[in-house]
Design a binder for these strands. Structure first.
Lengths: 143, 143
DNA sequence: GGGAAAATATTGAATATTCAACGATTCCCA
DNA sequence: TGGGAATCGTTGAATATTCAATATTTTCCC
């Protein structure tokens, strides 16, 4: 009872470690554009041009509301996105990507795809696909 | 080129999402003890009683140095751990768990094991083991 | 239809994290 | 052996995140 299994065998730890490492590498690629990974997620979600509410966005980009609000403030300052009050439900704010935001999105997408390709190459196509499949399953069960 | 693949298909995103969810659940279990997951990791690493330097610890618990220093400050205030200057290399500080810390560690270990059991049950033993294996592989390649 | 309850986003204060710089110690090697 | 470079941990300032409270709008339902 005194000694439990090492921390490196816990799923929670392995997920944290893998996430940290992959995120760090992606961040390094984005350094050139001076954009944190979260902003890429935001831009990517907005790239359908449809207008997403803050609530939707927060959910999609894995940020809680106040954090998102403040990040969006910064992105508005940088003219990457803009707010439009929803006419149908005036509690809501719909977010859109600006032209500048869209151009940046494409550059970031390209950097992200390079990372994915790099991983697939080093780690193996098969393993990568299988890992994704298992993660999707876990996420689904966990909700 | 205009529309890239959805964000939910990126490995980096799936990892972030899974990590967030699992971590959140673990945090909920730890709520009772009022301890964040990072402190459990620290306590767990220190539970070998050997005395770990701040650098070692930071690496092991996935925190960077200044963050760890400040978290340790809090844990020292809470009498969970204590610092000892390393006699062999006086630049180093060796961290130890107090008796109070050790008792807490056991309670946290138990909560963490319950979570692991819960996951294994809901998600499947086979899938969980396979997921861990793949994550370990990814982490190894990524370093 | 009117008013309580719920949903949505933001704000401000408290807290936590990060970055860059520092002080102390040890290492290296000329 | 002396002294510059590297390592280790901490600190302070700047930045970011979170929690609780708020304002606004909509929904519900009697």
């Amino acid at each position: 009872m005194a000694s439990s299994k090492p921390i490196t065998t816990h799923l929670a730890y392995l997920l944290a470690q893998a996430n940290r490492e992959i995120n760090r590498q992606l961040d390094a690629r984005f350094r050139k554009e001076g954009v944190p990974v979260e902003q890429w997620r935001i831009l990517k979600v907005l790239s359908d041009g449809k207008g997403h509410s803050m609530g939707e966005l927060a959910e999609a980009v894995l940020l809680n509301h106040p954090t998102l609000t403040k990040m969006i403030d910064r992105m508005v300052s940088d003219s990457l996105v803009y707010r439009v009050q929803d006419a149908d439900d005036r509690r809501k704010v719909l977010m859109f990507s600006s032209d500048r935001g869209k151009a940046l999105t494409q550059r970031l997408n390209s950097l992200a795809l390079h990372q994915e390709a790099f991983i697939a190459e080093n780690y193996g196509d098969k393993a990568t696909a299988e890992l994704k499949r298992l993660l999707e399953g876990l996420i689904e069960k966990a909700n």
